[in-house]
């Protein structure tokens, strides 16, 4: 009999590593929400001089993929410098886990995002961040490349699902090549909005479905 998950995923799901809260964290990040069904909170303890991640913990409200990825990503990041840890992407986590079902990749990405955001937050609070730059189509596209196309299990930009992006005076419009009544349409719309809305100079995000 075949469960949809690899043994590695099941092992990390049943016995997750690095779980729990961290009282004296140097940085933390939360990705997702109970409303979207998955939520990850990630804590970092960083050595100020060497910028090595000394300790890392995560908490998960989510499905098996989410828990297993949180476990694996914290294992990968522990002991690495911030610059090294930034390079850990969901692909690395996915490989480490022996492959997740494509429909579940969007749950797994949250843990990876939480790691990146926590590192960004650390950099901000320690004066390592770059200046605020106005949002462009390229920046939107870059953010959208963290939204997963649930059909393919790859991001919506690479898979050609996002047809066009326009940015003007705080308004961002995203055209998606999917019928409006597609089973994933609603889910995708809210994921895209959640991803773009936090940009500092964006006021309104509109997602338009163009597929037949």
């Amino acid at each position: 009999m075949a469960l949809p998950y690899s043994e590695k995923v099941l092992d990390h799901f049943l016995h997750p590593h690095n779980v729990g809260k961290m009282k004296d964290a140097d940085a933390l990040a939360t990705e997702g929400s109970p409303a979207c069904g998955d939520m990850v909170k990630l804590y970092l303890k960083v050595d100020e001089k060497s910028r090595v991640i000394q300790d890392i913990k995560f908490e998960s409200y989510g499905c098996a993929s989410n828990i297993a990825t949180g476990s694996v990503i914290t294992e990968l990041a522990k002991g690495k410098t911030l610059d090294e840890a930034k390079k850990i992407n969901w692909k690395a986590a996915n490989e480490e886990l022996g492959g997740l079902p494509s429909v579940k990749v969007h749950c797994a990405v949250l843990a990876v995002d939480a790691l990146r955001t926590a590192i960004e937050n650390y950099e901000h609070s320690h004066g390592l961040n770059k200046e605020k730059i106005p949002t462009t189509e390229d920046i939107v596209m870059k953010r959208l490349s963290r939204v997963i196309n649930p059909i393919a299990g790859l991001d919506v930009v690479k898979t050609g699902l996002v047809k066009e992006v326009r940015v003007g005076q705080g308004d961002v419009t995203v055209w998606v090549d999917l019928p409006e009544d597609h089973q994933f349409a609603n889910n995708l719309r809210s994921e895209i909005i959640e991803r773009i809305e936090p940009l500092w100079d964006v006021q309104r995000v509109t997602v338009t479905f163009t597929g037949a």
Binding site: C36, Q183, N187
Partner: peptide, 8 residues
Amino acid sequence: ACFSRSLE
């Protein structure tokens, strides 16, 4: 949602 085919 995680259990459903529509992710809803």
